[in-house]
Write a protein that binds this DNA or RNA. Structure first.
Lengths: 123, 123
DNA sequence: TCAACTATTAGATAAAGTCTAATAGAGGAG
DNA sequence: CTCCTCTATTAGACTTTATCTAATAGTTGA
């Protein structure tokens, strides 16, 4: 609705996709695969035990790969499990994550302001 | 992407539409019309001087009216200006705004967590 | 009269998010 | 050994949000 269009959400073009900086921060600590990322998201305060839509997470991962933020390969492991698609962060992804940091700080300010303006009304 | 579907964004179903709680907080202080709301949004820290998409704001107002959060009438004033569509908040809108307050507080926690997890990586 | 400002609306398209469900291997209960 | 649950990924259809462009029209001042 506002702010000049940006290709990447990390630049603040849109307000959503909080899932993306989370995924980037996960992958910055080491590679991981979709299913496990979903479990980790589930445990964050944003989801707080509620199951994130798996389809959406996989879709997001795919779009992040298309935008060069992450890279994936199929891990056909020795012992068991069918091929997991394992994701790792790229240098572009690291940059994106850093950009998200300042964007999120801006969002927080904005959210604070809205909360304030709502609370002022009741006061 | 996550959280059980909610009809109204104020319930936390989606992350976006920060514009809506702002509009609700404006209207809670008194009726106002689209063009002026756009100017006021422009001055908030979220937009910070950047012009919000007018079309989007009018569209949002219309959808908010359809959902019963606001009510409008055309003000054909004596002296000048063509008909302005003046909006006021409804009791449902007041409720919605209150709901937004807690939702935004939750969002802020979530954003804090993401910022923390990004900052931890660099530390 | 022409430009800038006020004021609203509509159309087209792109991006996000949700739901359903298909596919498939692995492990445990009965 | 069969059925159920869990792990794991993908695709299709659809709705909601968001963005951009632009049409329309009255007002004000140079």
């Amino acid at each position: 609705m506002a702010i000049k269009t940006a290709k990447c959400a990390c630049e603040g073009g849109t307000l959503i996709r909080f899932i993306q900086p989370y995924i980037l921060s996960f992958l910055a600590c080491g590679e991981d695969y979709g299913y496990n990322i979903i479990q980790r998201l589930e445990q964050t305060r944003i989801w707080d035990g509620q199951v994130p839509d798996a389809s959406g997470v996989y879709r997001t991962l795919k779009s992040m790969e298309q935008r060069g933020l992450v890279h994936s390969y199929i891990a056909t492991s020795e012992n068991s499990t069918q091929g997991r698609r394992v994701y790792s962060i790229t240098p572009a992804g690291i940059k994106c994550m850093a950009s998200w940091e300042s964007t999120l700080i801006e969002y927080r300010k904005g959210i604070d302001d809205i909360i304030d303006s709502i609370q002022k009304i009741r006061a």
